[in-house]
Design a binder for these strands. Structure first.
Length: 307
RNA sequence: GGGCAGAUAGCUCAGUCGGUAGAGCAAAGGACUGAAAAUCCUUGUGUCGGCGGUUCGAUUCCGUCUCUGCCCA
């Protein structure tokens, strides 16, 4: 029987942070964030990052971990997260993973095939093919070598197509085959808890939180990022709450419209998260309807662990 | 008080030369293996404002009423 790891998932705004903090406090342990945006420095208000008090009180990993211009990927996340899980095990602490980035969670829980590194030269060449002949050319190539993954690819996802071809050209084996073969051997047992809210209530909370973000100075935060010289084309800034404010600052839309769009896009995001997590049958869903439910849940969860 | 224009899906509107209707947005469902807060796919039945009339048949034409907006008094 492996070492236990507690995982907290759920839609944005569902109280994951609160539950994680409570659990970490009760179990005297640390939090491993699985959030592809809170991982970046200077994205605070718009990502609903834990505040400085909370970060001082409980040690958080992968918060303020990257500069906004840094490229990152799930495979790196998996490796680095596993290292932290090891360290915590050594010091006899039960790790708590908290986050809404489904792919990151999956990478840690199930692993992600990592036999094929990236090859920037090859990528550049493939990108060149796209620029000259269009993405259809690459999709045709992929159809020939790996029809199974080609069938799932859409032309708009050219980065995914490049990745699939990259894997094939570097190894002579398709990404589909690699995925099927992939098996990871780690001695960890993940307990995944999902926070479930009535959809209408969740949406209402999302809307309130967006209003709060504006009151807390989201527009100023975005202006500061621009002043620091960060481009809005950065992946880190292709984020709900930031891209809409860029539009407002460029006078494309009004602030009112930007707020409305942030609310809608956050709802859409929450829905995508739920679709993702609902597919994972290992998740233990807990209905909650307020912060007290979350504290009660924390108490209940820790009863399963000897202190 | 008079005139004009509206009233159709949760919202904004289109349309039916009379055979009970369709777009965008919202919403819902889904996919996802090195961008993942990303990137995509699928889904449109609603007393066509109420009541009468004409008609085989009215959401569509006519009358009337109600409501909304604008204009004139």
């Amino acid at each position: 029987m492996g070492r236990k790891v507690i995982v907290v998932v759920g839609a944005t705004c569902s109280g994951k942070t609160a539950l994680g903090l409570k659990l970490a406090e009760l179990l005297n342990t640390e939090i491993i964030s699985a959030d592809s945006r809170q991982i970046y420095k200077y994205l605070n208000i718009g990502t609903a990052k834990p505040n400085t008090d909370e970060l001082d009180k409980i040690k958080h990993h992968f918060i303020d971990y990257l500069e906004p211009e840094e490229e990152y990927n799930v495979s790196r996340y998996e490796k680095e997260a596993l290292k932290i899980l090891d360290n915590l095990n050594v010091s006899n602490k039960i790790p708590i993973i908290v986050g809404g980035s489904g792919l990151y969670i999956r990478a840690v829980v199930d692993g992600i095939f990592d036999n094929v590194e990236t090859d920037e030269v090859l990528r550049a060449r493939l990108k060149n093919t796209i620029d000259t002949y269009g993405v259809g050319q690459l999709l045709e190539q992929l159809k020939l070598v790996d029809p199974e993954s080609a069938a799932k690819m859409l032309p708009q996802n050219w980065k995914r197509i490049i990745r699939a071809l990259e894997v094939f050209y570097l190894t002579g084996k398709t990404i589909t085959e690699w995925q099927k073969e992939y098996k990871r051997n780690i001695d960890l047992e993940f307990e995944i808890y999902g926070l479930s809210w009535n959809r209408d209530v969740l949406y209402k909370m999302i809307e309130n939180r967006v209003d709060d973000m504006i009151n807390m100075g989201l527009v100023e935060e975005v202006k500061k990022l621009l002043k620091k010289g960060y481009s809005k084309d950065l992946n880190s800034l292709n984020t709900v709450g930031y891209k809409e404010i860029f539009e407002y600052l460029d006078n494309v839309i009004s602030l009112e419209k930007a707020v409305e769009l942030i609310k809608r896009n956050t709802r859409h995001y929450a829905k995508r998260q739920l679709t993702w997590f609902n597919a994972d049958k290992r998740i233990k869903w807990v209905n909650v309807n307020g912060i007290n439910d979350i504290f009660r849940l924390a108490e209940k969860i820790i009863m399963n662990y000897e202190l």
